[in-house]
Write a protein that binds this DNA or RNA. Structure first.
Lengths: 218, 218
DNA sequence: CAGGAAATGGGACCTTGGTCCTACAAGCGC
DNA sequence: GCGCTTGTAGGACCAAGGTCCCATTTCCTG
């Protein structure tokens, strides 16, 4: 599994590191964009195509971990591979806890880096694919009116038309109308498909069956 | 969020470390079990109640990371907090990639350790809760006959009784019979609830709607 | 061989869901 | 004010789902 059009961003303040990493990665067939500062990266990076970023830890202005946090805050979810000559355990552990793909030490073995980049790009491709699905569902949901959304919520909770009508204080006939329009707008032909679509989008998160709580206050 | 009856396992070959950790953790209200070897731990550890394990990295016979791998292989999923005086970046990164809850260096700040333990136990409690739900679903599924399971699969994919009958080469009447028994055994009263129950158990994983592939061979 | 579980299905009947057509009132924008 | 969307709802009708009754066959187990 690999990807055409995949880009590896290299962010490092040292020009010679940028050059050698770019050479290595291009030789392996990746598109490479090199950037010397975190600011530059934040301006250039896109998430529309599979990619990952190889990030130096120590940089002037904004450090690698700082950039990583910035990315999370701004919703830029791209796999981050840290690459540094000055690694210590707390920094690496913190980076991993925040979701870094890996934390490598210079000098890095070429094969290890390429392997890591490949895995990161693959995971990003998978994430993009999932996101595309969720966005489609979100777009469908956005087309629903308030009433239709209320009916949808009831339907995926397994409520009958009669019950929904009682809940909303309207006639069963009207529920059927809304329900039909929901099925149209969500582009499904069965309740099962509707429920599964909504599950992938994280709608109606609370359970249909038993909820088991193991927790108590102390 | 905290837990009564939660146990912290301490695995360290150094008796004085075991004693001081146990004292600290007991003072914070946790049940503590100290063990001097990985083997001992594998015999004692249970997963029926919220817990976590504080693990030394360097130990004779079986090291912390080795024990961690062993746990994963044998399906013993308990949050692991590594605690070591001899930490290096590759070891810590590898441990985190394999799912360790944290990787701390001795001497550890008491507050940091307690905070980490609390989070680990909470995450384990949440996992146990989820697992309990999945096990209930699995138990229900296990009660289904082969035919009933086939009908269930079709139903949650949104197939009509008529289509299911054609697929299986039986009459629509028989499908209704199986379907009714499925609803009984799964303890639900609507297709929506059935689908959501199966989703939580990871049944019928492929999509009802569009599948977007971003990947191609190279 | 007797008993039971599993799978099959027919008949009768009712409830639910879904889809036409029609209609009307409220609110919004031009 | 006209056209649009949204929400409402009745009538008619059919398809789909669900539930009783019943019966048969097959296969496994004690």
């Amino acid at each position: 599994m690999n990807t055409d059009e995949a880009t590896v961003f290299v962010v490092d303040d040292d020009a010679s590191v940028r050059r050698s990493l770019a050479r290595l990665l291009r030789a392996a067939g990746w598109n490479v964009e090199t950037l010397s500062t975190a600011r530059e990266f934040l301006q250039r990076a896109s998430v529309s195509e599979p990619a990952c970023v190889v990030l130096d830890v120590r940089m002037p202005e904004m450090s690698g971990p700082e950039l990583h946090s910035q990315m999370r805050e701004s919703g830029l979810s791209l796999p981050v591979i840290f690459l540094t000559a000055y690694g210590d355990v707390p920094t690496s552990v913190e980076a991993m806890k925040r979701g870094a793909a890996d934390f490598l030490l210079k000098p890095v073995d070429a094969a290890v880096l390429l392997q890591t980049v490949t895995r990161a790009v693959e995971s990003h491709a998978a994430e993009l694919s999932q996101r595309k699905g969720r966005q489609h569902v979100a777009a469908c949901l956005a087309r629903l009116t308030t009433r239709e959304r209320q009916v949808l919520d009831a339907v995926i909770r397994g409520r009958r038309n009669k019950q929904i009508a009682a809940d909303l204080g309207i006639s069963e006939k009207t529920v059927k109308v809304h329900r039909g329009r929901v099925m149209d707008k969500m582009e499904v032909r069965s309740v099962a498909q509707l429920v599964r679509l909504c599950e992938t989008a994280g709608i109606g998160s609370d359970s249909p069956g038993a909820r088991h709580s193991m927790l108590s206050g102390r």
